Amino acid sequence: MNQLAHPAAPIAPVTLELHGVRLEPLGPQHADGLRAAARDGELWTLRVTSVPEPEQVDAYIATALEMRPGRLAFAVVDAASGTVLGTTSYHDIVPTIARLEIGYTWYGKSHQRSHVNTTCKLLLMTHAFETLGAALLGLRTDNFNFASQAAIERLGAKKDGVLRHHALRRDGTVRDTVMYSIAAGEWPEIKAQLRYKLALHGTR
């Protein structure tokens, strides 16, 4: 019996692992590692992301925890070394219609364009569709974050549309948000494609 079918029962924290990447429920113990990941590329300087400055990481984690049960945040960890590579989340969890989204995702620059993001998406989507029983999984990004849009489209997600004047950026401007989704019936093909991409990276 899946959790999303029972609105009274929030999604339980879970640890997921594959191909040397482990997703752990985000907590204060990850703060130093998350600071180091943010410094890897000075990611907070990017206008179209919401990566915290190093001194804001503790508040960032606290906010993520306060957002439960509507958000379940994960630390992305290298399983062999324990190094924190970044973070990702389930969010906008709506059990009554078996819908949730994946977002708040960022990785240190040295781990971008590697197998890490594909592995995380495979882990989170498999858990969402096959364990939680999601009917639909959403993804969203800034209308000027073209790299993120391309990455989401490579997953096989369908573009639902654009929410205009939707969210505040760190520089005080208001962004349009590009919305994507994957329906449960589309998951088997997308899962096969993610596995194929990981095989090309040399992961089995």
Score class of each variant (00 low, 15 high):
residue 1 M to E: 12
residue 7 P to Q: 05
residue 7 P to G: 05
residue 9 A to L: 15
residue 10 P to H: 07
residue 15 T to W: 06
residue 18 L to N: 05
residue 20 G to N: 11
residue 20 G to L: 09
residue 22 R to F: 05
residue 23 L to S: 07
residue 23 L to E: 03
residue 24 E to W: 03
residue 27 G to T: 06
residue 28 P to M: 08
residue 31 A to E: 15
residue 39 R to F: 04
residue 43 L to N: 12
residue 48 V to I: 03
residue 49 T to P: 03
residue 50 S to K: 07
residue 50 S to G: 12
residue 52 P to R: 01
residue 54 P to S: 08
residue 55 E to P: 01
residue 59 A to M: 02
residue 64 A to T: 02
residue 66 E to Q: 14
residue 70 G to Y: 14
residue 71 R to I: 04
residue 71 R to E: 14
residue 74 F to Q: 02
residue 75 A to N: 11
residue 75 A to F: 10
residue 80 A to N: 08
residue 87 T to E: 06
residue 91 H to K: 04
residue 95 P to L: 03
residue 96 T to Q: 14
residue 96 T to D: 13
residue 97 I to A: 08
residue 103 G to T: 07
residue 105 T to R: 07
residue 107 Y to H: 13
residue 107 Y to I: 00
residue 108 G to Q: 05
residue 109 K to M: 00
residue 110 S to G: 00
residue 112 Q to F: 02
residue 119 T to M: 07
residue 119 T to D: 06
residue 135 A to E: 14
residue 136 L to E: 15
residue 139 L to E: 02
residue 141 T to G: 04
residue 146 F to W: 08
residue 149 Q to S: 08
residue 151 A to I: 05
residue 155 L to G: 07
residue 157 A to F: 09
residue 159 K to M: 13
residue 161 G to Q: 07
residue 168 L to S: 03
residue 170 R to M: 10
residue 171 D to V: 07
residue 172 G to E: 12
residue 174 V to L: 12
residue 180 Y to Q: 03
residue 180 Y to S: 01
residue 181 S to T: 04
residue 181 S to D: 10
residue 183 A to G: 10
residue 187 W to T: 00
residue 187 W to E: 03
residue 189 E to R: 14
residue 190 I to F: 06
residue 193 Q to K: 15
residue 193 Q to C: 01
residue 193 Q to L: 10
residue 198 L to V: 09
residue 199 A to C: 10
residue 199 A to V: 07
residue 203 T to A: 15
